[in-house]
Structure formats: structure tokens, C-alpha cells
Design a binder for these strands. Structure first.
Length: 411
DNA sequence: AGGAATAGCCC
DNA sequence: GTACGGGCTATTCCTA
């Protein structure tokens, strides 16, 4: 790709700086994109998605400011109490400063020798060494919720209008900002409420990334599992433990789930060891066993890495491409999966925006639907989502419904 | 004022 | 001995 070609793509992807190529007509840009086989994605996905994102922004999502005010009050009280208790152990310092925190915990109180950070994961390990640790973890959690979610949402009044960025990611996913409504924690979700006479209905794709992987890798076992609507983590466990499905325990399933998760992310042995709590050696054994059982996944990953080496980019089944440095193998392995899942949900958004689509959270769509129309609309949306793209396995959508985003119940 | 570093929330 | 993919935002603290 030449410098100019990269600039054109950047221009298309960065409407904030249109002055650079203001004179370049879309038709010309489209022709250039066609050189990379990206014109179809432009015309069939990204351009038709633009009015959808505009509609979502204008609709907004209703906020329950009473809920937020009550929550803020409780949080302020808890923060005040926790700070007092923490200071009883440590003396005064800025609890929000990791630098001061490290000095207090490791130098002043000498709870343990210096850890590499004061992040929650590290502090969890020394929770039983000193009573102040859990107070700090508790404080951080509540302060985070208040400062990042409650206060900013209260500043918005009765409506949150996020901006969905079409160009915010390297894989084709959407991102959300100001406010980011794609990372709202469970405890804050009840603050988002449907209008009078309406309910929220969420539709989430079940295991969409593993279904994409099964298709991309054309893995026989995985495809069969999804065709039979099996519990995929249980199936993986029965494979790597060489155990019949009915004898798979919860622990075995949990380990298999971590493996499946890791495979999508291009995980190596040490990452898997850390995530699973196994020794490095055991982790290597399970990974080897996994790739032995799902040989086509292993071969597919090799193919992706070769493509990266030879072409400098990788692509998904739609031809969406990502240029990467040669050493970014994990990102390369993840891209065709994450990216096609993103394409699928975008295609679904375009076809379902005839209803009141409010949010897109990667594998989930949230709609606001009038009470008396729920049944027909839900059937239509679910049907559209499940038939929008043809994989080697079925697409499956779970539906949940409720008056606020925090207490959605299966339909 | 702005950015790096750190932390933590989501899929 | 090691790093699992993709995002956004708040706070502290340092530099300009």
C-alpha cells in the first residue's frame, strides 16, 4: 500500500479531518478501496450503517436520575467510612495515588516486599496479610463506580446520548464515547430505563466468536457441536480430558472455557497458565491436547500467521483487512474472528433499525419496544439477527426483557 | 495545558 | 522469564 492509498483510507475513516482530502469525491475513494476489495464493505456495511448510528444518537437512552442520586448518596457515605477506616491503619495519604499507595503498603507498613503494582489483581494476593487491603479494594470499587459512571451520568440529565464511532477500532468493531455505554457495569445498568409504555429488549448473540472460529477454521468437531446446540465449553472439556460429556465436572468445564477464550485471543502457554492457575507445564499440556483435538483450529491459526508474514495484513471472511506489524501474531489470530462478529452485528443493525434500536454492545443489541407490540417485534428482530449471515453453524440469539437495563429477564 | 502512567469497567 | 484480543475514562503526577 502506498502512502497516498493509506491517506485515502485514513480520510475515509477520519471524518474529523476532511480538509485533507475535501476535494476527493466518494466515488474516487470507493474506486481506491476497490483495489483492496473493500468497496463491498464500504457500500453494504459502513455507509448504510451511518444513518443507523445517527438515529441511535438522536434517540438516546432514558436515565433514572433518582436512582443515580440515591446511589450517589450511598456511595459517598461508604467512601467516607472506608477512608476513615483506611487512615486508622495507614495515616492520611491520597488513596487515589498508586505511588503513595505503594509507599504506604510496602515501605511504611511493610506488608510485603514491593509488588510490581498496586492493581487489584496484586492486592488480592495479599488480602489476608493485612486488614487494610480489602478496605482499599472496596474503596477503589466504589470510588470507580461513582467517579466514572454515577457522576457523569447525573450530569447528562434525563437522557444519555452516546456517540458510536465507526472508526474507533482496528477490527471493525464500533466504539462508544461521551459517554461510553459499552462498558457500563451491572450495578449502574438499572439507571437506564425504558420510556413509559415501552420495555427494553436485549438480543445477544450466543458464542458468536466461537461460531465464527468454527466456520473460519472449518473445524469438524466444533461445527458439529454447534449444529447440535451443545454446550461448547463442556464439549471442549470432554475433548481435552478425554472424558464422556456426562462425566465433565464444573472445574473441567471452567478450564475448557478459559481455553476457548484463550484460543480466540491467540493465547500462549504462560497466559493460559496465569488465567487458569495451572503450572506452565500443565498449561502447555492442555494447549497441546486442545490443538490435537481441534487440529483444524491449529492449522487455521498457522495459516493466518503465514498470511501475516507474506502479505503484512490479515482479513476476515468478508475481506475486511487489518495491516499489522509482523510480530503481532495474537492480534492477527484474533482479528478475523472479532472482526467478522462485528460485521455480522453491523449487518443486523442495518436491518433492524426499522425498530427503535438504542445500543450496540459488541454482541448485543438493545431495543426499546412498545408494550403491546413486543411479541411480533421480538420474533422479527430475532429472526433477522439469526439469518443475517450464513456461517457453517447456526447463529443463536438470546432474548431478555425488562423495564430497565439492570433487570432483564429471559423471555 | 497536556500527556504518560496507573487503574478499572465492558465485550 | 515472558504478553491473551478489542475499547473509553478518571485520577495523579510530571513536563512544558
Amino acid at each position: 500500500m502506498t502512502e497516498t492509498e493509506r491517506d485515502i483510507i485514513n480520510w475515509l475513516l477520519n471524518p474529523d479531518e476532511p480538509q485533507v482530502y475535501a476535494g476527493l469525491r466518494l466515488k474516487e475513494a470507493e474506486e481506491r478501496l476497490a483495489q483492496f476489495g473493500l468497496d463491498k464493505i464500504l457500500k453494504e456495511i459502513e455507509l448504510p450503517l451511518m444513518p443507523v448510528l445517527k438515529d441511535m444518537h438522536e434517540r438516546g437512552v432514558g436515565l433514572d436520575s433518582n436512582f443515580l442520586k440515591n446511589l450517589r448518596k450511598r456511595q459517598s457515605q461508604q467512601i467516607e467510612d472506608l477512608i476513615k477506616k483506611i487512615y486508622q491503619h495507614t495515616g492520611e495519604f491520597n488513596v487515589n495515588s498508586p505511588k503513595q499507595m505503594a509507599a504506604v503498603l510496602f515501605d511504611k507498613l511493610k506488608i510485603v516486599p514491593r509488588l510490581k503494582s498496586t492493581a487489584a489483581g496484586q492486592l488480592e494476593l495479599i488480602k489476608d496479610k493485612h486488614p487494610v487491603i480489602s478496605l482499599i479494594l472496596n474503596y477503589r470499587e466504589i470510588f470507580k463506580a461513582q467517579s466514572t459512571y454515577v457522576e457523569p451520568l447525573l450530569g447528562l440529565g434525563e437522557m444519555a446520548r452516546t456517540t458510536f464511532l465507526q472508526t474507533g477500532t482496528a477490527t471493525g468493531r464500533l466504539s462508544s464515547k461521551n459517554p461510553n455505554l459499552q462498558n457500563v457495569p451491572d450495578v449502574i445498568r438499572p439507571a437506564f430505563v425504558a420510556r413509559a409504555g415501552c420495555v427494553f429488549v436485549s438480543f445477544d448473540y450466543s458464542q458468536i466468536e466461537l461460531r465464527v472460529l468454527a466456520t473460519a477454521a472449518n473445524d469438524k468437531k466444533m461445527i458439529e457441536a454447534f449444529q447440535n446446540d451443545l454446550d461448547i465449553h463442556k464439549l471442549t472439556a470432554s475433548q481435552v480430558f478425554n472424558t464422556p460429556l456426562e462425566k465433565v465436572t464444573l472445574d473441567m468445564r471452567q478450564l475448557a472455557k478459559t481455553l476457548n477464550f484463550g484460543v480466540v485471543y491467540g493465547m500462549g502457554p504462560s497466559a493460559f497458565a496465569r488465567a487458569s492457575g495451572l503450572s506452565r507445564q500443565e498449561a502447555e499440556k492442555f494447549i497441546a491436547e486442545y490443538f490435537n483435538d481441534f487440529a483444524q483450529v491449529r492449522d487455521w491459526q498457522e495459516k493466518v500467521k503465514n498470511e501475516l508474514r507474506q502479505k503484512g495484513y490479515v482479513e476476515n471472511l468478508n475481506g475486511r483487512k487489518r495491516w499489522l506489524p509482523i510480530e503481532a501474531e495474537r492480534a492477527a489470530i484474533n482479528m478475523p474472528i472479532q472482526s467478522l462478529a462485528a460485521d455480522i452485528i453491523k449487518m443486523a443493525m442495518i436491518q433492524t433499525n426499522k425498530y427503535r434500536l438504542l445500543l450496540s454492545i459488541h454482541d448485543e443489541l438493545l431495543f426499546e419496544i412498545e408494550d403491546d407490540k413486543v411479541k411480533d417485534v421480538v420474533d422479527d428482530i430475532k429472526n433477522i439477527m439469526e439469518s443475517i449471515y450464513r456461517l457453517s453453524v447456526p447463529l443463536k440469539v438470546n432474548v431478555k426483557i425488562g423495564c430497565n437495563w439492570g433487570e432483564l429477564k429471559p423471555l
